[in-house]
Design a protein around this nucleic acid. Structure first.
Lengths: 167, 167
DNA sequence: GAAGTTTACTTGCAGGAAACAAGCAAACGC
DNA sequence: GCGTTTGCTTGTTTCCTGCAAGTAAACTTC
């Protein structure tokens, strides 16, 4: 009926106007955008795993449903955290990429990672985590470099990158 | 029927066993705990506004409902992020306090604050935010000092502390 | 010591969001 | 043309949220 891109646009416009934000606190406003169980995982995958495509996120191992994923991508886009464009090599594909605003979430995400690794039993290797906690600035610089260079190599190999992008 | 304290305990035990976590990633596990619009706001208020009591959170200006607040406090407690005890001065009151695990969320929260202030129009004074971004270590040390000293003075006066604790 | 007030909740209900399953159109590869 | 891949959408069911109202226990006042 409509081309996908137009459909997406219509939805964005509609969904952006929800209830008024609750307070002027920046934390509160941030939580309004990604205060749920999925959004930050998408940002994480874009940032450190080099994910770009719908399917990558679907198979990320977290078990997100397609409708929820589509919804979150749409919301993150309309919040200016990621941008979309059609893959020049295959017009079926939509490529997702963090914006400047999105990549600025790197410190938050890194802290969250360190916190989780410290206080919960996770599958993360302790050595890597210790290194991350100590080399904060270095890691943040590297994340940004990759983003600027549009380099999809996963930052954390043990997390696994997108599987078989060219199957 | 039951004293409130016992009721709370029963709920905690019951609610802790939900679906299995989705992946071993620390970020994912963290989001499992406070991946919603309210939990981190509660942590924020405990950390920088000196809130201690149920009523403080209710009147924080965010408009949280009583049942949601009770639920989040319970979950945060059973996740080990905050602890509760009865106010020695008034046995009706429950005093909430961050645990070590909870105060360790300070870096995350600070980054979130800086991010929000940078990318969204908020009511926060720019000067204060700039100062926070620059003096990260100092601020984190001060937050921890207050926590260790059990000092309820709000860290950010412009946020407002608990109103009329002794009315 | 009875009556009212405060505090920290719980309960009930309606509406919305999430999970699950299925379907579908456009773009490719042959 | 024909089957496949990709990125979705559309139901359906189930679970979760948020609001309004209510409640029990602990204080306060008289």
């Amino acid at each position: 009926m409509f081309p996908a891109s137009k459909l997406r646009y219509h939805r964005c416009v509609k969904e952006k106007f929800r209830a008024a934000p609750r307070s002027g606190c920046p934390v509160s406003i941030g939580l309004e955008i990604f205060g749920d169980r999925w959004s930050l995982l998408i940002v994480r995958d874009l940032m450190v795993r080099g994910f770009r495509r719908f399917k990558d996120f679907l198979e990320s191992g977290e078990g997100i449903a397609t409708n929820v994923l589509a919804d979150r991508l749409r919301k993150l886009e309309s919040a200016g955290i990621l941008s979309t464009r059609t893959d020049p090599d295959d017009a079926r594909r939509v490529l997702y990429r963090l914006t400047e605003k999105g990549i600025d979430l790197a410190p938050t995400l890194l802290d969250l990672l360190v916190w989780g690794a410290k206080h919960e039993q996770t599958g993360a290797p302790c050595a890597v985590i210790a290194e991350m906690a100590n080399n904060r600035a270095t890691i943040l610089a590297e994340v940004r470099r990759r983003w600027e260079a549009d380099d999809p190599t996963p930052l954390l190999p043990w997390l696994g990158g997108p599987r078989n992008s060219r199957r």
